[in-house]
Amino acid sequence: MVEQISLITEQIPHLRRYAAALLADRDNADDLVQECLARAISRHHLWKPTGTVRTWLFTILHNLHVNQIRDQKRKPEFLSDPVGYEQHGELPRQENRLEVRDLQRALQKLPDDQRAVLLLVGLEGHSYAEVALIVDAPIGTVMSRLARARDGLRKIMASQSATDLKVVK
C-alpha cells in the first residue's frame, strides 16, 4: 500500500494538469482531483495490476467527470456559465495570458467526449489504447473523437482569432 501511495502521489501533477485543461475553472479542477484521489484510496484494493496506476487514476477521474456532466444536465438550473472566468474577468494564476484564455475558451466549446480524448492524448501523452481503456470506448471511437476534436479546435480557434483580429497560429 505504501508503494501504491507514492505511485498515486506521483500522478497528482498529471491529474491536476489534465483537470485544469478539462474544466477551465481551477477550483473545480482541484475539487475533481481531490474526489478522484479519495475514491482511488478508498478503492485501492480494486486496482488490478493489469494496467498502470496512472491509467487507473485517469479512469476514475474520467468517470467522475462524466457523472458530473450528467448531473449538471439533469439539473440545468445549476448549469451557470460553465466557463466561469468570463464573468469574473480575471483568471487565476498563469491563465491570464490572452492566448491561453483563447485556448481555454475554444476547448470549452468542444463536446466533452472529444475534449477528453484530445487532452488525454495531446496533453497527457496517453497512448490510444490507454485512452480507449480510460474512456471505455473502442479504439476506433477514440480515433474518430480525436480527429473531430483536432479539426473542431482548429476551426474554433481560427474563427476566434478572426473575431479578435488576432493571430493564433
Binding site: P13, R16, R17, A21, E95, G122, R150, M157
Partner: peptide, 14 residues
C-alpha cells in the same frame, strides 16, 4: 501547433 499550445498553456499547472 495546437498540441504544442495546449502543452505550453497547462504545463505551468504541472
Amino acid at each position: 501547433d495546437q498540441k504544442a499550445l495546449i502543452r505550453d498553456a497547462f504545463d505551468a499547472v504541472f
